[in-house]
Design a protein around this nucleic acid. Structure first.
Lengths: 267, 267
DNA sequence: GTAGAGGTTGACGTCGCGTCAACTTCAAGC
DNA sequence: GCTTGAAGTTGACGCGACGTCAACCTCTAC
């Protein structure tokens, strides 16, 4: 029993083009009587085609399929490996969908966000180093901004609330400590600095994120900005408070970072 | 403030190749002093690039991005449309993963299934029209076999059990009716035929699946096979039982299908 | 003079086919 | 014998978003 290319295509529910392709790549060689003549397929070819399509439906690539069919490659093993990448893709998709959903929600609530830095206003509210987008962009890459933005939009409403809460508490504690005239070198002040560093390191995309400590230059650069910019200073009880924060962070940096980097300022 | 291609690439966290590509497709045109000279990017370009990358991270294609940025296309609307396809993809992925998982499980339990028709033995057990793979393949396309196989592996363990239970009950009822000497034209027998037709129409991939009734030729062809093949006949209480089933299905078909198809046998 | 860094254009590869295009072969009908 | 149509063939481009050479130019520093 033999079939023409069209017949076997109908039997298997694929197009003849697909069969020619499989022939061309050697996945399903056809029998030819004359060179350049019509392709013919027999029963073994049909069985092989069925297995190919089964595995294809499971998402395997043609190369992997050939490997499973032609070599000693264990089928179950191949599928388990395949499962891993499928699950990764699934996770990626889920995060992306969450991100798109939050973006749409933000756009509906506040159409102004169309302006580019979506939700920048909402992100950390009144404690938003992304307001320094321009400066951050030029010194640390707008990549940082984009990454932290993506990360933020991936969080659930509740997670965002918790995050905001932590940040606001930190801001208040800074202001209180400043008003109380705390010594920047005191344990109390240094504990605040550690929380601050923790916070920064926890925002993906910022220099040093994921490490134990944020990038030293980034931390000190921000400290300077807090003092230099009133909008920022306002979060720490004004310029005086910001000065206290800067001093404390400098002491913290001097102690926390391994020595040997040399002198450095943030002009 | 202007940047070279490398500088803006670092700022945005992409490669220069990407920027050249965006320039080539007109998504992010670069400024050139001389023709063929180095590309330069200014602040507006950087802002635009940020928006591009934001949307890209959300999974939009470059064409859609250009549409959103350059025309009056509503961004939120575009994202909502995009969400639909993302969700579809998510569903597809989930089904595929379920399918792969069941296949792996089947392979681990019974390595013989490597032989091609994975789980064919398990599918409907003792009532398995896929055992007629060869005949089915030639008359109705192996496409049918593959589709029903995919569908079956997509069901949960419980759903499979339920399905099997229904099929076994049907099989028993057929055998009982045959033994009792029921009249094929009786309401009782015809009710069984209707259940049988329902069952067949419920298996995706079979001819007529999804319709109210399965394909007439398919139904009658199966009826003949039940009689002709002992393995099948065994499900209906042997050849005698199968004959009863065939007669009943023929009466059913004569009544249930619109007339005008003309005479026809299943040689 | 020469090495190196950074720029340019052009073109191929990826993955699994869809979709022409141009041509041949074979059988049926006039 | 000629036309027509159906079915086959090979060859090539296209898709999407770039990665990855290759070959060449230009500027600066030593």
């Amino acid at each position: 029993m033999q079939w023409s290319i069209q017949e076997i295509a109908r039997l298997a529910g694929v197009t003849s083009r697909t069969l020619r392709h499989y022939d061309a790549v050697g996945l399903l060689p056809a029998v030819r009587t004359t060179d350049g003549g019509p392709r013919r397929y027999d029963r073994t070819a049909l069985v092989r085609l069925q297995r190919i399509l089964l595995l294809r439906d499971l998402g395997l690539g043609l190369g992997d399929i050939a490997e499973v069919l032609d070599t000693q490659r264990d089928e179950a093993q191949a599928l388990r490996t395949h499962l891993v990448s499928l699950r990764e893709e699934q996770g990626r998709l889920a995060r992306q969908i969450a991100s798109v959903e939050r973006t749409v929600a933000a756009l509906e609530k506040d159409p102004d966000t169309t302006e580019g830095h979506i939700m920048a206003k909402d992100m950390l509210d009144g404690f938003d180093h992304t307001r320094y987008e321009q400066e951050v962009t030029e010194r640390w890459g707008s990549d940082a901004y984009r990454q932290s933005d993506t990360w933020w939009r991936g969080l659930s409403e509740q997670e965002q609330q918790e995050w905001k809460g932590r940040v606001e508490a930190l801001s208040r504690d800074w202001a209180d400590a400043a008003v109380a005239g705390t010594d920047p070198a005191s344990d109390e002040a240094q504990a605040l600095a550690a929380r601050h560093a923790d916070w920064l390191a926890g925002v993906p995309g910022t220099p040093g994120a994921g490490q134990r400590l944020p990038d030293r230059g980034y931390l000190l650069g921000l400290a300077d900005m807090y003092v230099a910019d009133d909008r920022f200073a306002a979060n720490y009880g004004g310029t005086e408070g910001a000065r206290f924060v800067r001093e404390t962070l400098r002491v913290f940096a001097a102690r926390a970072y391994p020595a040997g980097v040399g002198p450095e300022g943030a002009s």
